[in-house]
Simulated assay, not measured.
Amino acid sequence: MGLMFTTVIGYSIVLGIAALFTMHFLGKALDSSDAERIDPKPEVK
């Protein structure tokens, strides 16, 4: 029973770390300020 809990918690930690690294690198690559420079916001609706 303890091995099952340890495995599930360890796997969750590994998935969380992988998700954090992915979001960190995607956040740097997909800079939202580039969108305004490439496709400027229209002045009138």
Results as ranks from 00 to 15, higher is better:
residue 1 M to Q: 09
residue 4 M to E: 15
residue 4 M to S: 13
residue 4 M to L: 15
residue 6 T to H: 03
residue 6 T to V: 10
residue 8 V to E: 06
residue 8 V to T: 13
residue 8 V to N: 02
residue 9 I to F: 10
residue 9 I to T: 13
residue 10 G to I: 07
residue 10 G to Y: 07
residue 10 G to S: 10
residue 11 Y to F: 13
residue 12 S to T: 00
residue 13 I to K: 05
residue 14 V to R: 08
residue 16 G to S: 13
residue 16 G to R: 02
residue 17 I to E: 02
residue 17 I to T: 10
residue 19 A to L: 15
residue 19 A to R: 02
residue 19 A to G: 06
residue 20 L to G: 07
residue 21 F to I: 15
residue 21 F to N: 00
residue 22 T to S: 07
residue 23 M to W: 10
residue 23 M to Q: 08
residue 24 H to M: 10
residue 24 H to K: 12
residue 24 H to P: 00
residue 25 F to P: 01
residue 25 F to D: 07
residue 25 F to I: 08
residue 25 F to C: 00
residue 26 L to C: 09
residue 26 L to V: 07
residue 26 L to H: 04
residue 28 K to I: 08
residue 29 A to D: 04
residue 29 A to C: 03
residue 30 L to Q: 04
residue 30 L to P: 01
residue 30 L to I: 14
residue 30 L to W: 10
residue 31 D to W: 01
residue 32 S to G: 00
residue 32 S to V: 11
residue 32 S to E: 05
residue 33 S to M: 04
residue 34 D to I: 01
residue 34 D to C: 00
residue 34 D to L: 06
residue 34 D to F: 04
residue 34 D to S: 04
residue 35 A to V: 12
residue 35 A to T: 08
residue 37 R to G: 00
residue 37 R to Y: 05
residue 38 I to V: 15
residue 39 D to A: 08
residue 40 P to D: 08
residue 41 K to A: 03
residue 41 K to F: 07
residue 42 P to A: 02
residue 42 P to H: 05
residue 44 V to W: 04
residue 44 V to D: 00
residue 45 K to S: 13
